[in-house]
Amino acid sequence: MGEPTAQEAADLPAAIMPAVAPVLPSFVRVLRVRKDTHDTWTIWLERPDGYPDHRAGQFNMLYAPGVGEVPISIASSARESRTRIAHTIRRVGAVTRRLTSLRRGETIGLRGPYGSAWPVAESQGADVVVVAGGLGLAPLRPAIVELLARRKRYGALALLYGARTPADLLYTAELGKWRSVLDFQLLVTVDRADRSWHGHIGVVTTLIPAVTFDPQNTVALVCGPEIMMRFAVRDLLDRGVPARRIYVSLERNLQCAVGFCGHCQLGPKFICADGPVFAFDEIAPYFSVREL
């Protein structure tokens, strides 16, 4: 395996660089690839020069030359490593097929970090309830890492995680570790189980009544399929968590990532630049309108 050629930045005419810069990727090496489930991989990429510490909940645009570019949430915390960035990717289309076929040492385009973040530092002193559905655990993982790293600064901490089947569960080794963390309520459920499963069965929202928290003093972080978030938000509101303290991460067609190409609009919001993480009260009027 030959050494990758560095991006030839010297070739770029200085006047044109800023012109393209908003959508110009850096090219970085794949440092590690891990298969998580039958359709999902985590890849660790080298951190580009000049890349700022990202915040939990932000995303990168990953670019496979000749195939295309997709937004992928960042699955690692800047606390964990200053040299590598993890992305958990489900194989669903042409670009993610390419991204999940990468080998260690190959080169891929990356630009970021983009978007708003989970209010991790802002939630100190509060109870924090994290609700993750499916791949929604990936953008929440860095938040959980950061919450646990400063465990004493928070009140009750809970992670409610649901997947379709036991085989779809992500980060199973890490879930095992988290299970042994004292004072951390970890509840896992699957929609459909097989004989090997001895845990809870049902959608993730069915776990909400089982956790202990003080609704008035709780921050909820919610990410998953939109239908799951709808029900999770409803149930959290019913428990008495204020709308402004329920955070959701929305997904739309993100292409430019800088609030410009227009694809990701939800009412007045550009999901890529104003979001993807929103306090629910900011988007409540638009979230419930079909096909908006």
Partner: peptide, 9 residues
Amino acid sequence: NGDGVQLQV
């Protein structure tokens, strides 16, 4: 270019 790339604006 092998495992790397060349970028031209």
